[in-house]
Amino acid sequence: MQKDSLSDNAGGGLRGLRARPSADLLKTVCDAYGIHSLSDIIDLGGSANLNLFATDGHNRYVVRVYRPYVNEARLADIQLARQVLNAQGIPSSKVRLTLNGQPYILFDGRLVEVDRYVESDANMASWEHLAAGLPLLGRIHTILRDVQFSTEGKKNQPFANYIEPQNALGMTLKGIQRIRGWNPSAYNMRLITATEELAYLVSAAEQELVPMLPRQMVHGDFWDNNVVFRDGRIVLVTDFDFMGERARIDDLALTLYYFDCSDEPSSAKRLGGLRGLIDSYDSGLTEHLSMRERLSIPLAMARQPLWSMGGWIALLDDEEAARRHAAGMLGDVEWALRIIRELDRWQAAFS
């Protein structure tokens, strides 16, 4: 369980706390799914949901308990996305049906589903694995573009690692205002100054480009242990909790941000490597990236740290949790500022 898991409620209690394992939960699951008993229980982690590994002696499962803000319409669309992708040969979670033929149950006001556990030996967190995984993201975008989702499915969740371009400046300033109320330290003043500069620069640079970008349904968190390998082959794409309708390059930019955000200088070699990853993604698309989209990718990468300020520090209910979150984000903001200050180089490398 993550450090902040007991204090990461947000939005005035709207997000709810991450569920905790209990004997009552396991019994309810066993009764609903016709399982004699579950053992070898392991919390697999995950910042959003409770994900429990469990076995009945013959089969291995993941018991997933959603936070209270995830409603039935939203879960139905998450399951629809996975079903469609599975049908197209992209390995995604496969739910087990209850004895009554239902794809989920309700426990303590939360939705619960049971999936088949998939064995893996590597996550998508290296140059090699990203080069293999990003064409699949292109295929996912191509497939999801033509699927009809409900309004709930299309919504960009307020407690995700994403901030809409048109909301980034205003929400970031709310987070900054919260920090100003802490009698901020020298570190926090540096964070305020850097984040404010980043928000204004990104907002101004995206103002003309973003309205022209095509929007569609995207995965929302295509990174690390959400894309897993076995023997060099992708065996599972999971965690669609943050899916929503947005520019498809925002999905790609999130992956590149998580992979590249570091103190390493943006050398020509490194920018060339990132360009190669973008081309790998583009190879999976039927409608290839436009020049406008390629020029927008560095800006979308630079916008990423703003969801920490505008989406978490501004919204976390517990002040100590917000302070801990702020304590770890200055490096990310300074990395993003380097992109903005060298924007011509980044755009030239990606175009």
Score class of each variant (00 low, 15 high):
Y281V: 10
R323F: 13
I163P: 10
P165R: 00
R110H: 09
G89Y: 03
R64K: 15
L26K: 00
L14I: 15
N86Y: 06
E334C: 08
W312K: 02
W346S: 01
A204N: 08
T195Q: 06
L6R: 09
S93Y: 00
Q216D: 01
R292P: 07
I78R: 11
E342H: 00
A131T: 06
K269V: 10
V333E: 04
A204Q: 14
V63G: 15
Q148D: 14
G153I: 06
L306K: 02
N123R: 14
P135G: 08
A54C: 12
G133Y: 04
V227G: 07
I90D: 02
V114I: 15
A73S: 13
L236V: 13
L44P: 01
M301P: 05
E72D: 09
A194Q: 08
P103S: 05
G133N: 03
Y66V: 11
I339A: 06
G328S: 08
P298N: 02
S185I: 04
P214H: 00
R215C: 00
I340T: 13
A247K: 11
A168P: 09
T238R: 15
F159H: 05
N225H: 09
Q207M: 14
G11Q: 08
A125Y: 06
S266W: 02
G276Y: 12
R74G: 05
G310T: 11
F53K: 09
G273M: 12
Y69L: 03
G12N: 07
N49G: 01
I234H: 00
S351Q: 13
S185L: 03
L85P: 00
A302N: 00
D115R: 14
Y281I: 12
I140A: 09
Q2T: 15
E152G: 10
L85T: 12
I192S: 00
G232L: 02
S37V: 04
E206L: 15
S266Q: 08
L315N: 14
A314Q: 04
E287L: 10
F149H: 03
A314H: 05
L52I: 10
S266R: 01
T98Y: 11
I143W: 06
T238C: 10
D146W: 13
S5H: 07
G34F: 06
L144C: 11
S308E: 14
V228H: 00
R246P: 12
D251Q: 07
R248P: 00
D8A: 07
A204I: 14
S351D: 14
H325S: 04
G175Q: 14
D40L: 02
A160G: 10
Q157V: 14
N49M: 03
I313N: 04
V218S: 08
I313D: 05
D40S: 05
W182H: 01
E293V: 07
A268F: 09
F107E: 03
Y257G: 13
V237I: 06
R64F: 10
V63A: 14
G89F: 04
Q148I: 12
A194K: 05
Y187S: 03
R60H: 03
V63S: 12
D108M: 10
L136C: 11
Y257I: 12
L85N: 01
C30Q: 04
T193C: 12
F222A: 00
F159P: 03
V70G: 08
N51L: 05
N59A: 11
L17S: 05
S93V: 01
S150G: 07
G331Y: 09
R64Q: 13
R180W: 07
L50N: 02
G273C: 08
D250V: 06
M301T: 05
L213F: 11
A205Q: 12
M309V: 11
A194L: 03
E164H: 12
D56A: 01
A186C: 07
